[in-house]
């Protein structure tokens, strides 16, 4: 049983800053595992542990994703090994390019039974890579999965959709995008962190996996912090009966 958990390396959202011209700055943001992919890695780890499978973490991106601490972080969460395609030419990809690059990386892994993706990436959250990857690999693909039961040659998954919960049977190999409800990602213990340093990570270049020139399918025109809408900011201090009364007078006009 070969399981692949795909993960994206993103700038830590908490440390993204906004410049006065509303540009976004990543200067202070360290690279980290995309939050939704922690659920994807955990789902893979639980399946691999239950079925004595082999879990591989796969990621693609710029050279800086090949970071020793980040790799240990991933490996402390269950995968036996990591395969990364790290090349500066793989920075800021759109979802079609990402799915193509992942496909090329996964073909280096060889045989696989199950590929897991997160619900979306923490930075762009397009929720598309799983769908596109499945289509490109020409295998069954499903999203919004919050339960996986692994069986011989197939999986039975539960999907949580807007109005219904759907149970479906999918033949393997397949690509599955999991929700953030599927599990609570583990908190790596010292034992797991120490063990991570002894696991293997393979780092390849775009050339190694045969990714040639592929153009962007979406043209990014700009990325800016939203302009704040002007608000009245008529704030009353304190909750004395009088203050509440004057507050009600003000909002009554709006609520009429």
């Amino acid at each position: 049983m070969n399981i692949i958990s795909c993960f994206k390396v993103v700038p830590d959202e908490q440390d993204i800053t906004i410049k006065p011209n509303r540009d976004i700055s990543f200067e202070k943001a360290p690279m980290t595992i995309s939050a939704y992919d922690l659920n994807c890695i955990e789902a893979g780890a639980q399946l691999a542990e239950a079925f004595e499978g082999n879990l591989i973490g796969v990621s693609i991106g710029a050279k800086k994703i090949d970071d020793s601490k980040l790799k240990k972080n991933v490996l402390s969460r269950g995968p036996e090994s990591i395969l990364m395609v790290a090349d500066d030419f793989l920075e800021d990809l759109d979802t079609y390019q990402t799915a193509n690059a992942l496909k090329a990386a996964i073909q280096k892994v060889g045989e696989f039974d199950l590929i897991l993706c997160g619900e979306g990436s923490a930075d762009l959250y397009a929720q598309q890579v799983g769908a596109q990857l499945g289509q490109l690999l020409n295998v069954p693909v499903i999203n919004s999965v919050n339960k996986i039961a692994l069986m011989e040659g197939k999986v039975i998954v539960e999907r949580s959709l807007e109005d219904e919960v759907e149970t479906i049977e999918i033949p393997l190999p397949a690509v599955i995008s999991v929700t953030s409800d599927i599990n609570l990602p583990r908190i790596p213990s010292m034992k797991q962190i120490l063990a991570a340093g002894k696991k293997s990570a393979t780092i390849l270049s775009a050339l190694d996996v045969g990714i040639g020139d592929f153009g962007a399918t979406l043209q990014v025109i700009e990325t800016k912090a939203p302009e704040q809408k002007e608000r009245k900011k008529d704030i009353i201090q304190g909750d004395s009966d009088e203050a509440i009364k004057s507050f009600i007078t003000k909002i009554n006009k709006v609520l009429k």
Binding site: S68, K72, N73, S76, I187, G197
Partner: peptide, 12 residues
Amino acid sequence: EEQELLVESLRE
């Protein structure tokens, strides 16, 4: 790196 990761685990 191991110590930093452990501290991150503890924060989480």
